[in-house]
Amino acid sequence: MPGYVQVNSKVVQVPVAPGREVLARRGAMLAYTGQVTFRPVTAAQGISGMLGRAVAGETVKQMVAEGSGQVFYGHLGLHLTVIDLTPGESLQVEADRLLCHDASLTSSVLFLGQQGGIRGAVRGAVSGQGLFTTQLAGDGSAVVLAHGGAIGLQVTPGRVVAVDPQAYVGHRGQLSVDVTAKVGWREAVGRGSGEAIQLRVQGQGVVYVQASEQKF
């Protein structure tokens, strides 16, 4: 199937067709050709799902592109990365880092505490993600925003990657993310290296980091 085409580092061209609708951040459309309409959606199943998202803070307003044509998306001049998912794979990413994705992907809100209990919750608090994150699964593509582009780092069993919490963008595959804090007396008196808290990623998959420690 014709996939997402990256026009330049900040713009992606996405084909839209009946049965191949695309969900995107509201207001991120730059231009389009063909007959396409944009309708606001609240990504939730029922009231409970909506409330759940509102509580979780994973409510980036979205719109769906329907019809047939080619749509150009971009947001705030941020660099973007296209991630293709194969069936069975899942991508975990913050909702506000998602630019657009195929509507065929199932999106769910994940409570980080589920994954490794209190450690997961600590990780969310440290990386500034909050206690919730968005999970995309299925067959399709997603586009992720990052300062300076997202860099994919391969993780295999036995090869652990340590990541700065502020540079962490998301990950896909079977990975576990733990917080490690090496806080000694130096940190306590303000003479630390500034890298005391790290995320240790292990398992099988890819972790995405951005070339900046700036959040947005």
């Binding site: 509201r26 991120a28 309708r39 609240t42």
Partner: peptide, 30 residues
């Protein structure tokens, strides 16, 4: 109802170009 209470896609207003020529678009809506 959504339209009435102000839920919009943010893309309601668009510029429509026809004819022969070139259109210049920047990589951001900012």
């Amino acid at each position: 109802l959504r339209g009435a209470i102000g839920i919009v896609s943010g893309e309601e207003r668009q510029f429509d170009f026809t004819g022969a020529g070139t259109v210049l678009i920047q990589s951001s809506e900012k």
